[in-house]
């Protein structure tokens, strides 16, 4: 009896996002049937892919109970480096993508060194690098808008069999991340570390290296995300990516990643980002005042966080020792 109740509440807690998602889709579908047409759905996923790619990376960090506030600045600086590679060295788009991701790896390494080696807490480290990375980027551009060569937009607006490139990249990133998290030793160790850093150390895992890699992965994803978004616009202005860290964290948390570590998945981040975008576009579709949209989004995130908090309480209650049979 109690077991089955437990299972139901467990299911609701674990799948809160999917349940909310289903509710939102059904609601909009009734309000505006055209919302559920393939074109509209493809558009949602496309718009979600930018935050989504970064949210997949953020999930790695959140799994270790860390946080990365610098993603917005990485989304700015990395495509900028790629832009120089294209404009000044005349390199083609694929090289530029690699340049952007490599920049992300370097920036992530800086975070990792500060956190793992110098033991500055992630919040402060990434708060500082948020300023540093953006400052460095705008120093390079002298706060001017940076125009990319035209090929980049051709790339950004291209597609394969009618599927827009951002969606393909998003899918690829999510799939790779899923494989890494669910099916590699490193991935499982990330979960173990998030569940109990002390336990991971005792089990002989190389905890520093695990932690370092998640920050590198997070920055690399943020870099790719920034590049994909720039490829839509073709130019980079000084405020690009500002405040994006909060959207990215919100998407990951909405996708079921716990801020306390150990819980979350790449697939969840995809759902989280898509859910946010669905709510956003749905509000547009149903003609809700533009200004009210962030408020409704906020409320939905609030519910997700509330559920996360309750789930954590439930986990703690479960861990409490019972000393006699129930």
């Amino acid at each position: 009896m109690t077991r089955s109740m437990d299972k139901i509440s467990d299911f609701v807690f674990r799948n809160a996002t999917y349940l909310i998602f289903a509710g939102v889709l059904i609601y909009y579908g009734i309000q505006a049937p055209s919302f559920l047409t393939p074109e509209s759905l493809v558009n949602i996923v496309k718009q979600a892919s930018f935050t989504g790619i970064a949210a997949v990376g953020m999930t790695f960090v959140l799994l270790t109970a860390g946080i990365d506030l610098s993603v917005g600045s990485v989304m700015f600086l990395a495509p900028l480096m790629a832009g120089y590679v294209m404009r000044d060295l005349g390199m083609p788009v694929p090289v530029a993508v690699v340049a952007a991701v490599l920049t992300g790896v370097v920036l992530g390494s800086i975070n990792a060194i500060l956190i793992v080696r110098l033991r500055v807490i992630p919040f402060i480290t990434t708060l500082a690098t948020l300023f540093l990375f953006r400052g460095f980027g705008t120093w390079l551009t002298s706060s001017q808008q940076f125009d990319f060569p035209d090929e980049i937009r051709a790339f950004g607006l291209s597609g394969v069999f009618g599927i827009p490139t951002p969606i393909i990249v998003f899918t690829a990133v999510a799939l790779v991340a899923h494989l890494v998290l669910a099916h590699t030793e490193f991935g499982r160790q990330v979960y173990a570390f998030g569940n109990s850093p002390e336990g991971a150390r005792k089990a002989g895992l190389k905890v520093g290296w695990i932690q370092a890699r998640v920050y590198i992965i997070c920055s690399a994803c943020a870099a790719l995300s920034g590049f994909m978004l720039i490829a839509q616009i073709g130019r980079l202005d000084a405020a690009f990516g500002e405040g994006a860290e909060f959207d990215v964290i919100a998407a990951a948390v909405l996708g079921g990643a716990s801020l306390f570590g150990g819980i979350g998945s790449a697939f969840g981040a995809v759902i989280g980002a898509t859910l946010i975008q669905t709510v956003k576009l749905g509000l547009v579709f149903t003609g809700v005042n533009l200004y009210l949209q962030p408020i409704i989004q906020g409320v939905i995130i609030f519910i997700a966080v509330l559920v996360d908090g309750m789930r954590e309480k439930q986990v703690l209650a479960k861990m409490k020792r019972t000393i006699r049979p129930l």
Binding site: R188, Y191, A192, N195, A203, G204, G262, I263, V315
Partner: peptide, 18 residues
């Protein structure tokens, strides 16, 4: 006990080398 409650039995056994 030094187990990872978010992982499976098999994963707990092999966490330091799969």
């Amino acid at each position: 006990l030094n187990l990872f409650t978010n992982l499976t039995v098999a994963e707990n056994l092999y966490i330091d080398g799969f």
